[in-house]
Design a protein around this nucleic acid. Structure first.
Lengths: 112, 112
DNA sequence: TTATTATGTTCTATATATGAATCAAAGGAA
DNA sequence: TTCCTTTGATTCATATATAGAACATAATAA
């Protein structure tokens, strides 16, 4: 990760992460799960779980999704099956669309 | 990250990430945005965007949220304002709940 | 109150995700 | 077809997120 400069995030992204973290925290309490227990189930450290619950945007999305799934927070869809359905549908749409994005040539316009 | 062993993810998490990636890809095409352009707007590299669209679970959630937000994919809520409302509501609930999870003492039962 | 457990916080070593560069392959326009 | 662009797929150097430990603080039960 060379040339890295502190990344900026939009307010919406920060709110979304904070909300998801709070939802996880709430769900964990309702499930009567210790931070350590939930972390163990998700295969992550307690420290990482804490950062997730705080809405830290630098956590890997896989860890966040795992934790959310364990405590019963459904991403995107209410019933589980709809997820894969929508996935297949989306992928079918993709095959029918142009493979690459291409706008009108800039080169030709620029030089003359 | 010591003692790291290839992390495993649930099928649901993998599907969720794959779906989100496909949705991003689709939205990007509809917005007529080049991968490079979207990556620039999100402040990430094109390679990272590629992995996000592939549903790679090891990407940082902040980058994924940024990209999703830019192409108009709303996380969790349809209208933007409801997000913060729900956030405040959730945090209020948290203050009314026990601060820590504690089950009946195991020590006392175990030894005697 | 006291004892015990959960959570918060900081630190360090290291595994690894990321940015950048490169090349190949594919796609769309003329 | 030929050109130009976009995308896919590598590779590598390095910035950094993570695991783990240690400790402090907070919170619950008795």
């Amino acid at each position: 990760m060379p040339k890295s400069i502190a990344r900026t995030y939009s307010q919406y992204s920060r709110d979304a992460a904070a909300l998801l973290g709070s939802l996880i925290r709430e769900a964990r309490n309702e499930h009567k799960l210790t931070a350590q227990e939930l972390a163990d189930r998700a295969g992550i450290s307690r420290g990482l779980l804490q950062r997730i619950e705080k809405g830290n945007l630098k956590c890997e999305i896989g860890a966040v999704f795992e934790v959310a799934t364990i405590v019963g927070i459904k991403l995107f869809e209410a019933d589980g099956n709809a997820l894969t359905k929508q996935l297949h549908h989306t992928k079918e749409k993709l095959t029918l669309m142009p493979k690459s994005v291409r706008r009108k040539s800039r080169k030709v316009i620029d030089d003359f």
